[in-house]
């Protein structure tokens, strides 16, 4: 059973000017196989930092991060990442982007082609294999990024505001897609978002983080992701429990933001 464990993680940045910025302080949690976690928090509270630590792009200055009882040191295929802007390779076609990971592993070519077909179909891009990625819309690019990450069959999927740049309609479709993939593949997913609604919808568990220094402020366990697998997302959004949770978290974050503003102003 795969399990992500964060044990009192500290992260301090040292700026070139010599200042020390404590981005994360004493963050501890664990995430079981197949769990869907969304992370919410005011800007600058260390969400991206946390994700980069798990992905292995950064090393914590204190504490231990481990996946399947193995300490994380450096990036790895078992932890797939979907970036906010897609971070696609614009000189490659859609298919070449999607099979990038497999090509790097020198995977069997025929099998790779078949897998690419499958994944393009799952994310709804069948027939776009030979299109250059720069000709795609933002939503399509994000779906390519998703397929590129999932084709590698990672144990843990990390997403940093993957839907932030999309319009409301595309965003809703993508949210359903994420839920669908979560259900069908049973992957562990950790998703960062700025939108409270999205966090509630896409979070079986939800962390609210507090800034300065970044730390876990509150944790929720929510039923909406399960509901979203069957029901209509808009109905869920109007459910009284959803509304209540939303208002509670909104005011929580609002207070935090106000506190920061008061500090800086």
């Amino acid at each position: 059973m795969s399990e992500l464990v964060a044990d009192s993680i500290d992260m301090t940045f040292h700026t070139p000017a010599g200042e020390a910025v404590q981005a994360l302080k004493d963050v501890s949690f664990s995430l079981k196989q197949g769990e869907l976690l969304s992370v919410l928090g005011p800007s600058g509270c260390g969400k991206t930092t946390l994700l980069n630590l798990i992905a292995g792009f950064l090393r914590p200055t204190g504490g231990v991060l481990s996946l399947n009882n193995r300490e994380i040191d450096g990036p790895g295929v078992e932890r797939g990442m979907v970036f906010q802007q897609g971070a696609l390779f614009e000189w490659l076609t859609v298919a070449q982007n999607v099979d990038f990971g497999l090509r790097m592993k020198k995977h069997n070519k025929k099998e790779t082609a078949k897998k690419v077909e499958e994944w393009l179909e799952i994310v709804g891009l069948q027939g776009f294999g030979d299109t250059p990625t720069y000709q795609l819309s933002g939503g399509m690019q994000q779906r390519v990024a998703l397929a590129r990450c999932l084709i590698n069959d990672p144990d843990l999927i990390l997403m940093d505001e993957p839907l932030g740049a999309l319009d409301a309609l595309t965003r809703e479709k993508m949210q359903s897609l994420v839920l669908k993939i979560w259900k069908e593949t049973g992957k562990t997913i950790m998703i960062i978002t700025h939108s409270v609604e999205e966090a509630l919808l896409l979070g079986e568990r939800l962390f609210v983080m507090a800034p300065r220094p970044g730390r876990l402020h509150k944790e929720y366990r929510l039923p909406f992701a399960e509901w979203g697998l069957e029901g209509d997302l808009r109905d869920i959004k109007n459910h009284p429990q959803f509304v209540q949770n939303r208002e509670e978290i909104l005011s929580m974050i609002w207070n935090m933001e106000e506190e920061i503003m008061g500090k800086t102003l």
Binding site: A55, F57, P75, F83, Q85, A87, G101, M104, R148
Partner: peptide
């Protein structure tokens, strides 16, 4: 981010 992506894709 592109280099990060390539890293986590196993390159």
């Amino acid at each position: 981010s592109k280099i990060h992506a390539a890293h986590s894709l196993g390159a």
